[in-house]
Nucleic acid binder design. Structure first.
Lengths: 153, 153
DNA sequence: CGTGAAATATCATAGCA
DNA sequence: TGCTATGATATTTCACG
C-alpha cells in the first residue's frame, strides 16, 4: 500500500480498467492472455497488476462459490437493533453464526443489516433465537436478485 | 453443470474444502502450489477444480476491488418500496445506476434492498431523486462492517 | 480418482529504451 | 512505464493402476 497518496487519488487508465474487467470475469486468466487482450507484453501487464495490488485497488483474487450448488437455497436479510448494553455481545455472537456471511452496522433505526445463507427455512428460527436476548430482529427472505453483485469500475 | 444431480446433492470432501479456502484467500494460486498444500499432484488438483467448476460449486474466480482505494468512501443501503404499477420501471431504472452494485427483492415491507458505493454524500440525493417517482426509499449509511463478506463452506 | 513423465505455455527477472 | 530475452516454473495431456 502506498502511503504517500491518499487512496482516493488513485487513477485508473483504460488499460487498468480493461485488465480489471478481464480479471473480474476470470481472475485466473494467465498474464500472457491478459497481455494479448490489451495488446501489451506480459511483463508490462505483470507490472500493472503489481501496482494495482500495491496501491490497494486490487484487494485480492477470490474464488466465487455458488451457495445454491451447496444446497443453500435460501437467502435471508436480517435487520437487527441491539437491546440496551448488548452491542458488544451481539457483535461477538453474530460472528459465531457460520450462515451469516456479511453484516453492516448502519445509521438509522436498524443498527445492523446481515445476510444469511440457509439450506432450509427451519434453520432460521434457531439462529434468530440465539440472538433474541441481544437484539430485536426483522427478517426478510430474498425472492430474487435484480442486480447481482457487480463491478464498480 | 451436471444435470443428473440435484445441486444440493453435491458433496465436498476435506480436500475440496481446503482447495476452496486456499482459492478464497488467493484465487491466482498456481495449481502446483495448491497441490503441494494438499499433498497431491498437480493433475489431480486440476481435475478436482474442473469437477468443482463443472458441478457449479465454483461459479468463477473474481478480482476483489477495494472501493475505498478508488475513492468510494461511503456505502449506502437503500430500502425501496415500489409505487403502484412501477415495479418494472423501477427494476429497469436501478440497473442504470452504476453506483448501485447489488439489489435483492425481498418479502416484507421493504420490497427491494440495494447497496450503493458513493464517493461523496452529495451523490446520494440525485440518485434517490432519479427513482423518487417509482419508489419510496429509506436510506441507511454503513458506519462499519462487523462481518465482512466471508466464505460459506 | 489418482500418478509420473514429457511437451507446451507461462512467469519473473534483468538489462535497455 | 514499457520492451526483449532468458532461465525457472507451471500447466496439460496421456498411458496406466
Amino acid at each position: 500500500m502506498r502511503n504517500d497518496l491518499r487512496k482516493s487519488d488513485i487513477h485508473l487508465d483504460g488499460i487498468d480498467k480493461r485488465l480489471i474487467e478481464l480479471l473480474y470475469d476470470n481472475a485466473r486468466t494467465p498474464v500472457s492472455e491478459l497481455a494479448r487482450s490489451v495488446s501489451m507484453t506480459a511483463p508490462s501487464v505483470n507490472e500493472r497488476l503489481k501496482r494495482l495490488e500495491e496501491s490497494g485497488v486490487i484487494a485480492g483474487y477470490r474464488v466465487d462459490i455458488d451457495p445454491l450448488a451447496l444446497g443453500y437455497s435460501l437467502i435471508a436479510i436480517v435487520r437487527m437493533r441491539q437491546l440496551p448494553g448488548k452491542m458488544h455481545e451481539l457483535e461477538a455472537q453474530i460472528n459465531l453464526i457460520p450462515e451469516l456471511v456479511e453484516c453492516d452496522k448502519v445509521t438509522g433505526d436498524d443498527c445492523y443489516i446481515a445476510r444469511l445463507y440457509l439450506k432450509n427455512i427451519s434453520e432460521l428460527d434457531p439462529i434468530l433465537d440465539s440472538i433474541s436476548d441481544l437484539a430485536d430482529t426483522n427478517t426478510s427472505i430474498v425472492k430474487s436478485t435484480p442486480v447481482k453483485r457487480r463491478l464498480l469500475v
